[in-house]
Protein backbone atom coordinates (compact mmCIF):
# COMPACT_ATOMS: atom_id res chain seq x y z
CA UNK A 1 0.00 0.00 0.00
CA UNK A 2 1.13 3.51 -0.74
CA UNK A 3 2.58 5.50 2.07
CA UNK A 4 3.32 9.18 2.06
CA UNK A 5 6.83 9.85 3.38
CA UNK A 6 7.27 12.29 6.23
CA UNK A 7 10.72 13.88 6.26
CA UNK A 8 12.32 15.46 9.26
CA UNK A 9 14.09 18.74 8.62
CA UNK A 10 15.47 20.26 11.81
CA UNK A 11 12.51 21.31 13.86
CA UNK A 12 10.13 20.89 10.98
CA UNK A 13 8.41 18.02 9.27
CA UNK A 14 8.12 17.96 5.50
CA UNK A 15 5.31 16.16 3.72
CA UNK A 16 5.17 16.13 -0.06
CA UNK A 17 2.04 14.63 -1.51
CA UNK A 18 2.94 13.26 -4.93
CA UNK A 19 0.10 10.84 -5.54
CA UNK A 20 -3.63 11.23 -5.72
CA UNK A 21 -4.85 11.18 -2.19
CA UNK A 22 -7.62 8.73 -1.55
CA UNK A 23 -9.51 8.65 1.72
CA UNK A 24 -7.65 5.81 3.40
CA UNK A 25 -4.27 7.26 2.48
CA UNK A 26 -5.32 10.65 3.84
CA UNK A 27 -6.46 9.11 7.13
CA UNK A 28 -3.17 7.22 7.46
CA UNK A 29 -1.25 10.41 6.73
CA UNK A 30 -3.17 12.18 9.46
CA UNK A 31 -2.32 9.62 12.12
CA UNK A 32 1.29 9.08 10.93
CA UNK A 33 1.93 12.80 10.95
CA UNK A 34 0.62 13.32 14.45
CA UNK A 35 2.70 10.39 15.69
CA UNK A 36 5.76 11.97 14.08
CA UNK A 37 5.02 15.36 15.59
CA UNK A 38 4.88 13.81 19.02
CA UNK A 39 7.96 11.62 18.45
CA UNK A 40 10.23 14.32 17.03
CA UNK A 41 8.87 17.25 19.02
CA UNK A 42 8.54 19.12 15.73
CA UNK A 43 7.56 22.78 15.89
CA UNK A 44 6.29 23.12 12.39
CA UNK A 45 4.69 21.01 9.64
CA UNK A 46 4.99 21.89 5.98
CA UNK A 47 2.66 20.14 3.56
CA UNK A 48 3.40 20.51 -0.14
CA UNK A 49 0.33 19.86 -2.27
CA UNK A 50 1.61 21.31 -5.54
CA UNK A 51 1.17 17.95 -7.28
CA UNK A 52 -2.38 17.57 -6.04
CA UNK A 53 -4.91 18.43 -8.70
CA UNK A 54 -8.10 17.04 -7.19
CA UNK A 55 -9.48 17.68 -3.73
CA UNK A 56 -12.82 16.94 -2.19
CA UNK A 57 -14.45 18.09 0.99
CA UNK A 58 -12.96 15.13 2.87
CA UNK A 59 -9.42 16.09 1.84
CA UNK A 60 -10.07 19.66 2.87
CA UNK A 61 -11.23 18.49 6.26
CA UNK A 62 -8.20 16.25 6.73
CA UNK A 63 -5.87 19.18 6.07
CA UNK A 64 -7.87 21.25 8.53
CA UNK A 65 -7.70 18.41 11.07
CA UNK A 66 -3.94 18.07 10.73
CA UNK A 67 -3.52 21.78 11.32
CA UNK A 68 -5.80 21.72 14.35
CA UNK A 69 -4.09 18.68 15.88
CA UNK A 70 -0.62 20.07 15.28
CA UNK A 71 -1.58 23.35 16.85
CA UNK A 72 -2.57 21.79 20.14
CA UNK A 73 0.74 19.94 20.09
CA UNK A 74 2.51 23.31 19.61
CA UNK A 75 3.38 22.90 15.96
CA UNK A 76 2.31 25.26 13.18
CA UNK A 77 1.07 23.96 9.83
CA UNK A 78 1.81 25.56 6.48
CA UNK A 79 0.20 24.32 3.28
CA UNK A 80 2.22 25.29 0.22
CA UNK A 81 1.84 25.18 -3.55
CA UNK A 82 -1.90 24.92 -3.84
CA UNK A 83 -3.10 24.86 -7.46
CA UNK A 84 -5.58 27.56 -8.53
CA UNK A 85 -8.21 24.95 -9.39
CA UNK A 86 -7.82 23.36 -5.97
CA UNK A 87 -8.17 26.72 -4.24
CA UNK A 88 -11.34 27.52 -6.18
CA UNK A 89 -12.79 24.10 -5.38
CA UNK A 90 -12.11 24.46 -1.67
CA UNK A 91 -13.72 27.91 -1.62
CA UNK A 92 -16.76 26.63 -3.48
CA UNK A 93 -17.02 23.83 -0.94
CA UNK A 94 -16.93 26.44 1.80
CA UNK A 95 -13.66 25.24 3.25
CA UNK A 96 -11.48 28.24 3.98
CA UNK A 97 -8.90 26.26 6.00
CA UNK A 98 -9.00 28.68 8.89
CA UNK A 99 -6.01 28.32 11.19
CA UNK A 100 -3.84 26.95 8.41
CA UNK A 101 -1.04 29.09 7.08
CA UNK A 102 -0.57 29.03 3.33
CA UNK A 103 2.38 29.94 1.12
CA UNK A 104 3.05 29.95 -2.60
CA UNK A 105 6.01 27.58 -2.60
CA UNK A 106 8.22 25.56 -0.28
CA UNK A 107 10.77 28.35 0.03
CA UNK A 108 8.22 30.92 1.13
CA UNK A 109 6.55 28.37 3.37
CA UNK A 110 9.82 27.65 5.13
CA UNK A 111 10.55 31.30 5.83
CA UNK A 112 6.97 31.75 7.02
CA UNK A 113 7.35 28.84 9.44
CA UNK A 114 10.66 30.20 10.71
CA UNK A 115 9.12 33.61 11.31
CA UNK A 116 6.19 32.07 13.20
CA UNK A 117 8.35 30.02 15.49
CA UNK A 118 10.95 31.62 17.69
CA UNK A 119 13.77 29.11 17.71
CA UNK A 120 16.79 29.37 19.91
CA UNK A 121 19.75 30.73 17.91
CA UNK A 122 21.87 27.60 17.95
CA UNK A 123 18.96 25.60 16.56
CA UNK A 124 18.67 27.93 13.58
CA UNK A 125 22.34 27.41 12.85
CA UNK A 126 21.85 23.69 12.86
CA UNK A 127 19.20 23.96 10.19
CA UNK A 128 21.34 26.05 7.90
Amino acid sequence: MDKIPILRFGHFLLVTIQVDLYDRLALNLESDLIQMVSKTQARGVLIDISALSIVDSFMGRIIGNIAGMSKIMDAQTVVVGMQPAVAITLIELGLELKGVYTALNVEKGMSLLQSKISLPDEDLDNIE
Binding site: V79, V80, G81, M82, P84, V86, A87, I88, L90, I91, E92, E96, L97, T102, A103, L104, N105, K108, G109
Partner: peptide, 12 residues
Amino acid sequence: LKTVAATRLMGA
Protein backbone atom coordinates in the same frame (compact mmCIF):
# COMPACT_ATOMS: atom_id res chain seq x y z
CA LEU B 1 -14.92 37.47 -0.32
CA LYS B 2 -14.56 34.21 -2.24
CA THR B 3 -11.79 35.63 -4.39
CA VAL B 4 -9.96 36.90 -1.34
CA ALA B 5 -10.31 33.55 0.44
CA ALA B 6 -9.04 31.65 -2.61
CA THR B 7 -6.04 33.97 -2.87
CA ARG B 8 -5.30 33.32 0.78
CA LEU B 9 -5.44 29.58 0.24
CA MET B 10 -2.82 29.98 -2.45
CA GLY B 11 -0.60 31.66 0.09
CA ALA B 12 -0.91 35.25 -1.09
